[in-house]
Amino acid sequence: MATHTVSAPAARRGRRPADQHTAVTGRRWWSELGWRYVVAGLAIVYAGFPILYVISASFASGGTLTGSNQLFGTITGDNYAALNDTRFWSWVSNTLVIATVTALGTVLMGAAAAYAFSRFRFTGRRVGLTTLLVIQMFPQLLAFVAVFLLLLALGDVVPALGLNSRLALIMVYLGGALGVNTFLMYGFFNTVPKELDEAAKIDGATHAQVYWTIILRLVSPILAVVGLLSFISSFSDFLLAKLILQSEENWTLAVGLYQWVADRLSANWGLFAAGAVISAVPVVLLFIFLQKYIVGGLTAGSVKG
């Protein structure tokens, strides 16, 4: 049942008939497609050259990042090999665990809240939405005082939630689970026709069943997007991570890499560059893997299909 309405989000892909693919040639090809390749090429150069610079530095022997402009002047794997003598790999695993759990938690809690905003009408709904948006704007600069005290108190009671715990860091990240993400999802939830839930309810489904078995499935693209965004933001956060994770074996990549270059007197750009290149890989892979969902997944507000 209800398949006709389900197709709404799905119908968005492939809105051009496939047969148009073949017909375009010559000048028309240029005006419709060719220039796009040119622009894309330029865009890639623009996006890529600083990264090329880092990759080149990661293969350079010694030297400083800012002091050399000769791309790939020397090529050696020393920096990569040297990573094994550091705690780099445990930072990688910490980061992956923390970012993945945070992303899962954010998706689940954010989706639940977005569902409520989208489907229920209750007092304080609009104010609630606005408050969520606003509270995230508080400058985090001084958070270190408050977060530190909070975790200190929690740590006395439950050590696992105290300072220097990866779980505590995840908790702090999850504190931001509602927020901008809720907005993204709220918009997408609105694009799922209400008739669908109503039909299901008429058939006797509860709100929980509607949510778990119907809605979540239809909004999977936005779940992927929010998951990715959350993953990236906890992946590259270093202010909170540096504050909370005090001992070296608990650090995340961002904290560890920062440590390598923070003290300019002992800055270690070679290691940093090699570590940075490796640490960018999971994000890129994740993006490639999820791309199908991401592209279909971002939409909001009044674009109701």
């Binding site: 689940l108 229920f120 005082v145 909070l150 689970a177």
Partner: peptide
């Protein structure tokens, strides 16, 4: 309080970890 069933998880984290920070500052 059906909507709350969906908010509570995120809200709890928000209150403990964000609102507290704002309040303390």
């Amino acid at each position: 309080a059906v909507p709350l069933k969906y908010f509570l998880p995120g809200l709890a984290f928000l209150l403990v970890y964000q609102v507290f920070v704002v309040g303390y500052t």
